[in-house]
Design a binder for these strands. Structure first.
Length: 228
DNA sequence: GCGACAG
DNA sequence: ATCTTGTCGC
């Protein structure tokens, strides 16, 4: 079972959650990787509108072959509603349950959402990184905070996202002439490496493979097309 | 005060 | 996020 550090409980009110984020943000470390990752994990959750049940899953991919080498999923319940800026309090608990079922310890983890591209610089990728104790980064489909200049239309082009003068992430083109994705470091990684890994996980779609496969997994779980 | 607002 | 068919553009 893949392990993680239980830094704190999750039964908090929105106000307490914001206070906690302001305390935890001091623990986030943006830095280059110390070793070359061999495996990467993608995470996501799915749910039926108006229902409390959530389907969480993690997919582990071999960075060399881009083959899925392990999948883990759970049916759980979200203890928190979706509130912009507090996504981690809704998704991380169930994702950790799925994570615990892995037999492999992924070298780096990609999240469907942001890392430092967050009002308090601690989006789901950064917050989860503190629990997982390994490099994490976010790759979101839309912006939460920050501004950026439209990057060139060619795959691989990117431009920095800024918020109050801070460079918090990048708008990255993963496919020619297709809307960019928003990449930002979570913890124990830097922006340049997060961008490189996102491009390395190309499968021909706008959404990189880790997130795309995790999304397919949890949707199959939700529709009963998959049992774990 | 008004508008924006990851999934 | 989820609910859904067709349709515009390369």
């Amino acid at each position: 079972m893949a392990n993680y550090q239980h830094l704190h409980d999750w039964n908090l009110s929105p106000t307490e959650a914001v206070i906690l984020q302001n305390q935890l943000r001091t623990q986030v470390r943006i830095q280059p990787l110390t070793t070359t990752p061999k495996t990467i994990a993608g995470c996501d959750i799915s749910f039926n509108k108006f229902e409390e049940t959530v389907y969480a899953g993690v997919v582990v991919i071999d960075l060399e072959t881009m083959e899925t080498i392990e999948e883990a999923g759970v049916v759980s319940t979200a203890p928190f509603p979706y509130i912009p800026g507090l996504l981690s309090f809704r998704e991380i608990p169930s994702l950790l349950e799925a994570w615990a079922k892995l037999t492999i310890e992924p070298d780096v983890v990609m999240f469907d959402g942001h890392g430092t591209a967050h009002p308090r610089r601690i989006g789901i990728a950064s917050h989860a990184g503190l629990f997982l104790n390994r490099p994490t980064f976010g790759c979101g489909k839309s912006v939460l905070v920050g501004k950026y200049e439209e990057p060139a239309l060619e795959r691989g082009s990117w431009s920095p996202m800024t918020h109050y003068k801070d460079v918090i992430g990048a708008a990255l083109r993963t496919k020619n002439k297709v809307n960019p994705v928003y990449v930002s470091p979570g913890n124990l990684i830097d922006l340049e490496t997060a961008i490189a890994l996102t491009l390395q996980c190309d499968g021909g779609y706008r959404i990189p493979e880790p997130t795309r496969r995790a999304h397919n997994l949890v949707n199959a779980l939700r529709k009963g097309e998959k049992v774990m």
